[in-house]
Design a protein around this nucleic acid. Structure first.
Lengths: 176, 176
DNA sequence: TGCTTGATGACAGGGACTGCCATCAGCGTA
DNA sequence: TACGCTGATGGCAGTCCCTGTCATCAAGCA
């Protein structure tokens, strides 16, 4: 992982071969593919933990919360976890933004997150399509908020940016 | 395109080689790659036209419409265009749903659509992050509505499903 | 007739990924 | 201690996606 991160950062994702990563890590190419399903997956190793936290937070949120509030609680928790990574998430995002292939992979991770969130909402008794809609909209808010947070040089609080984005979307929905 | 569609449908996307597609089409592999950037792109040839229609509809919508209403108009137009395809969109979606690679590609097409929609909204004077949020939420609504429409055996009207989904999200937002 | 242009074929090659078998260290057990 | 098991790794062959390059060839035009 460290070797891959370094090389992707230095010369870009597409310009890095798996053989080079393996060499820097002191392993063979074959061993790399035993640890990671493919060349991109290295950058998304933490996605499972994030999803688990999101789902758990939503499941354990007070019953009195509306679907959107429950989803929001999950997003905040996820945002807080990301923020713990310090500068790493931003570096990671730079690498991803520079490669179409990696952006594809990121999107499917977010879609998986949305599906898991919808599941968690259904677990709270939310019916479809409300569960799917809430989940997809929540992930959309997360996307926009995260993007803003990454670009932001002032190091704002990510959970706060998420909440602000959600509030703004609700205002737009009310006006539209 | 016809050869690819047929083969992807018959034996699945991953189990089809480009050589086979080329052979059935009476061409060489090299020629295939002159027409399509990669093996997946065959299934997304109509994406450009869809995006252009979406953007044009939003740009030409009455100035009095709110951002969400303008976005909704664009989605409706896109939905109507898809519906013209008859059974093809559903077959296409079956193929895509069966392959993780293809789902990735579809997601990036939707993300591109969202970016274009956000641009169109900015062209109407909508500021960021309102433009991005509206666009992402709109595409989320489109995703859910399209999915429901594809699964639906009663052949509902796609624009109508889109409108219903949007209404439901607005109700959820108001309640949350 | 000769020239240009666009589409295609042919070929070599790089790089991602997989399947298969060999090796080898650690570890429990007789 | 010797033995066997297991999990991680190396090595290697092979498939397939995709690209660069050059040759060919038909269509249109001067």
């Amino acid at each position: 992982m460290q070797a891959a991160f370094a090389l992707y950062g230095e010369r870009g994702f597409e310009q890095t071969t798996v053989a080079e990563i393996a060499e820097r890590a002191g392993l063979t190419e074959r061993t790399f593919f035993r640890h990671f399903a493919d060349k991109r997956e290295v950058l998304f190793a933490g996605a499972d933990a994030l999803q688990e936290l999101l789902v758990r937070t939503v499941a354990n949120a007070p019953e009195t919360l509306t679907p959107i509030e429950a989803a929001a609680a999950g997003l905040q928790a996820a945002g807080a976890l990301i923020q713990e990574g310090g500068e790493l998430p931003r570096q990671r995002q730079d690498i991803i933004a520079a490669s179409a292939e990696l952006r594809e992979r990121e999107l499917i991770k977010l879609a998986t997150l949305a599906a898991a969130l919808a599941d968690a909402l259904r677990g709270r008794g939310v019916e479809d399509p409300a569960a799917s809609l809430t989940a997809e909209a929540a992930i959309a808010v997360f996307k926009v908020a995260f993007e803003r947070w990454v670009k932001d040089t002032g190091r704002q609080d990510l959970p706060r940016v998420i909440q602000a984005s959600l509030d703004e979307l609700q205002a737009l929905a009310a006006a539209g």
